[in-house]
C-alpha cells in the first residue's frame, strides 16, 4: 500500500481535451473543403495540405530550435494551417503557403508564447501579411471549374461580388443561390456559405462554439447592409450579397470564434460579434478595400482583453447596490 498518488481534488476529469476540440474544428471545415474541390479542383486539397504541413512543421522546428516542449499534438497548428489555406486563392504558389504558415505560426503565435498566448488569430495575421506583400497573387480569384488539378495553369480570373458591388472591377453579380452554394470566385474555403454553415452547425452541436459570435456578427452585417444598401441595389439584395460573400461565414464561424483571441464571457462574445459586424460594414462601405472580414476580426482580437475586463460575470452573491437612496 505504498506510493499512493496524492493530488489535489477533483480526482476525476471530463474526457474531452484540446486535441479533440481541434479535431472537431478540422472535421467542421471538411464540407467547405469538399465544396472547394468541386469548384476549384484537387488543387484546393493540395494547397490545404501544404499549409497544414508547413504550419505544423514550423511549430515543430521552432520548438525544437528553442528547446521548448513540442506541442504539435494539441492540433492547434494543424487548424491554423487549414484556416490559412482557406484564406488563399487556389492559384497561390507553394511558397506563399510556406511564408504564410511561418508568419502565422512563428510570428503571430510562438513569438507571443505559443498556444493560448497569441493576441491575434494566427491564420489571419498570415493572410494579412501575404495580402500586403503580394497583393496581386493574393487577389487573383479563379472562376469555378477553370483550374487545373494541381498546376495552377492559366486560370480564368474572376471578380468577387464585393469588388463588383464596390465598382472597382467590371462584371455582373452572380445569382444569390450560386453565392450560397459557392459557385463564385474567391478564396479556397470562403466561397460556399452552405458548406461553412454545415460546419458551423456541427461545431454548435458538438458544443465547440456557441452561436453568440457567428450569429451576432452575421446579423449585424445583415441589418446594416439592409438599412444602408449599396448603390444601385435593393436593401434585400445588398444584404444577401454582403452576408454571402467576402468570407463572412468563414470569418464569423471559424475565425472570430477562435477561443484564444475572442472574449471568454458570454456578454463579451456578443460584443465581439457586434463589433466585427460594424467594422466589416464600415470597411466594406467606406474603405478602399472591398472586403473587411479579416481586418475586422483582427481589430476585435486586439480589443478582446479589454472586452473581457469589462464583461466579467457578476460573481454569485454580489450584493446589489441600492439605487436612488431614500424613496
Amino acid at each position: 500500500m505504498e506510493n499512493m498518488i496524492v493530488s489535489s481534488s477533483p480526482h476525476i476529469r471530463d474526457r474531452d481535451r484540446t486535441s479533440h476540440i481541434m479535431r472537431d474544428v478540422c472535421i467542421a471545415l471538411v464540407p467547405a473543403l469538399i465544396a472547394s474541390v468541386i469548384y476549384f479542383g484537387g488543387r484546393a486539397v493540395y494547397i490545404t495540405a501544404l499549409c497544414m504541413i508547413f504550419s505544423v512543421g514550423a511549430e515543430f522546428l521552432w520548438q525544437k530550435l528553442t528547446g521548448r516542449p513540442v506541442t504539435i499534438s494539441d492540433g492547434t497548428a494543424a487548424v491554423t494551417g487549414m484556416l490559412l489555406a482557406f484564406n488563399l486563392p487556389v492559384s497561390a504558389p507553394w511558397w506563399i503557403c510556406l511564408i504564410g504558415s511561418v508568419v502565422a505560426i512563428i510570428i503571430a503565435k510562438q513569438f507571443f508564447g505559443g498556444v493560448g498566448h497569441n493576441f491575434m488569430n494566427p491564420a489571419l495575421v498570415g493572410r494579412a501579411f501575404l495580402l500586403a506583400s503580394w497583393p496581386v497573387i493574393m487577389t487573383k480569384w479563379s472562376a469555378p471549374f477553370t483550374t487545373g488539378f494541381i498546376i495552377p495553369a492559366d486560370t480564368v480570373s474572376s471578380a468577387t461580388p464585393l469588388a463588383i458591388m464596390k465598382g472597382s472591377l467590371e462584371g455582373t453579380l452572380p445569382g444569390i443561390f450560386d453565392m450560397f452554394i459557392g459557385n463564385i470566385g474567391g478564396c479556397i474555403g470562403e466561397v460556399s456559405s452552405l458548406a461553412l454553415l454545415l460546419g458551423g452547425v456541427y461545431l454548435v452541436i458538438r458544443k465547440v462554439i456557441s452561436v453568440r459570435i457567428p450569429l451576432t456578427y452575421i446579423l449585424t452585417v445583415a441589418v446594416l447592409t439592409f438599412i444602408f444598401p449599396s448603390v444601385g441595389l435593393s436593401g434585400f439584395d445588398s444584404m444577401m450579397y454582403n452576408i454571402l460573400s467576402g468570407g463572412l461565414f468563414l470569418g464569423a464561424i471559424f475565425m472570430a470564434t477562435d477561443y484564444v483571441t475572442s472574449p471568454i464571457t458570454a456578454r463579451g462574445q456578443l460584443i465581439m460579434g457586434l463589433g466585427c459586424g460594424i467594422l466589416t460594414f464600415v470597411i466594406r462601405r467606406f474603405g478602399a478595400y472591398p472586403e473587411g472580414v479579416s481586418y475586422s476580426i483582427l481589430l476585435m482580437n486586439v480589443a478582446t482583453p479589454l472586452i473581457d475586463r469589462f464583461t466579467q460575470p457578476k460573481a454569485f452573491g454580489t450584493v446589489k447596490e441600492k439605487k436612488g437612496g431614500a424613496q
Partner: peptide
C-alpha cells in the same frame, strides 16, 4: 486507470470553466 494525473497544457481560453462555475467566477 483512474488515478492517473494528466499533464497540463496552455489554456486555450475555451471558456468552459467560466460557463460551469457555480460562483460565476472566471
Amino acid at each position: 486507470k483512474y488515478a492517473h494525473n494528466e499533464a497540463e497544457i496552455n489554456c486555450i481560453r475555451c471558456g468552459r470553466c467560466v460557463s460551469v462555475c457555480p460562483m460565476k467566477l472566471v
